[in-house]
Amino acid sequence: MTAPSVLQATLWMVGALFSFMAMAISGRELSAEFTTYQILFFRSVIGVLLISFLVSRSGWAQIKTHRFKGHLIRNVAHFGGQYGWFFGLAFIPLAEVIAIEFTTPVWTALLAAIFLGERLTLPRLTALVLGITGLLVILRPGMGAVHPAAFAVLAGAIGYSLTYIQTKSLSATETPLCILFYMTLMQLPMGMIPSLMDWKTPSLGSVPWIVLVGVTAMSAHYCMTRAFKLADATVVVPMDFMRLPLIALVGYLFYSEVIDWPVAVGAAMMLAGNFVNILAEHRKRLPLHSD
């Protein structure tokens, strides 16, 4: 891994971070006018147009698949994850949404052990314990009512973890564009059908937010994918952790949100656990040198 590749990966991660922040802001703005289902529908419409354009340039043959069931499972889980995330944006502080979302690696490790037979090593168990403890610190059960939106985001994080497990399986036979194509296509009716039951025609002022939420949903994942191709996870993932302080700053500047200490402490515990696991995985991949 050369210095130029690390610099390029950093630039791609800057793009990913700004995309995630813009998606969170646009989701918050749209939640004042639309239901979560309608936001997800708009997101899928923009996504279908963007992905169809990219597939048309690289070849439609790649979307032929014999794994329709696998795509369906992945997209039901991902739609659930997206619903929990966008629902949470409307009701709880932005920093709390991102902090709870950072439990996704915890549930991914647990599901990978159950469904893929992956070993729960000591670093993974450390991440698991710190992640769950950090979550309990944030939610503070027994110390007052927890907003239902926090549980929606938590359920969304579990949905995301199942998505990652299924993506790992699909990536053995499908191209990234194929996976994204079926993601946008399958999730389109999932958002459209419930949206029609309580349809609100977009106002002219909401159109830029609709375009932004759709474009940034695609650009965030594209930028992160490019970053992972150029640099190790030990370089890329810590940069992704910057989402939390950055989104907290956005919440403070735009929505007058103040982070309370349990969110900060709980998030720090989660990030520490994830970082321990990432470093351990990196060391396993280092070549052995003999003197």
Results as ranks from 00 to 15, higher is better:
Ala3Cys: 13
Pro4Glu: 15
Ser5Arg: 15
Trp12Leu: 10
Phe18Trp: 09
Phe20His: 14
Met23Ile: 03
Ala24Asn: 12
Arg28Gly: 02
Leu30Ala: 06
Glu33Met: 09
Ile39Cys: 08
Ser52Leu: 04
Ser52Gln: 05
Thr65Val: 00
Ile73Cys: 03
Asn75Tyr: 02
Ala77Val: 05
Phe79His: 05
Gly80Met: 00
Gln82Asn: 13
Trp85Gly: 04
Leu89Gly: 00
Pro93Val: 00
Ala95His: 07
Val97Thr: 13
Val97Ile: 07
Glu101Val: 01
Glu118Asp: 14
Leu120Phe: 03
Leu122Val: 14
Ile132Tyr: 13
Leu135Thr: 03
Leu135Asn: 02
Ile138Leu: 05
Ile138Ala: 09
Gly142Ala: 05
Ala145His: 11
Ala145Ile: 13
Val146Ala: 08
Pro148Asn: 10
Ala150Ile: 00
Ala152Ile: 00
Ile158Tyr: 04
Gly159Glu: 02
Tyr160Phe: 14
Tyr160Gln: 12
Tyr160Leu: 11
Thr163Met: 12
Thr167Pro: 04
Thr167Ile: 11
Ser169His: 11
Ser171Ala: 11
Ala172Ile: 04
Glu174Arg: 01
Cys178Gly: 10
Leu180Cys: 10
Leu180Thr: 15
Phe181Cys: 02
Met186Cys: 12
Met190Gly: 09
Gly191His: 03
Ser195Glu: 06
Met197Pro: 02
Ser203Cys: 03
Ser206Asn: 04
Pro208Glu: 04
Leu212Asn: 07
Ala220Phe: 11
Ala220Thr: 08
Cys223Gln: 05
Arg226Ile: 07
Ala227Arg: 07
Ala231Tyr: 11
Asp232Ile: 11
Asp232Lys: 10
Ala233Asn: 10
Ala233Trp: 06
Val237Asn: 10
Asp240Thr: 09
Met242Pro: 12
Arg243Asn: 14
Ile247Gly: 09
Ala248Thr: 05
Leu249Val: 12
Val250Trp: 11
Tyr252Pro: 05
Leu253Phe: 13
Phe254Glu: 14
Gly266Val: 04
Ala267Gly: 15
Gly273Ser: 10
Gly273Arg: 01
Phe275Thr: 09
Asn277Val: 09
Arg283Asn: 07
Lys284Gly: 06
Asp291Thr: 10
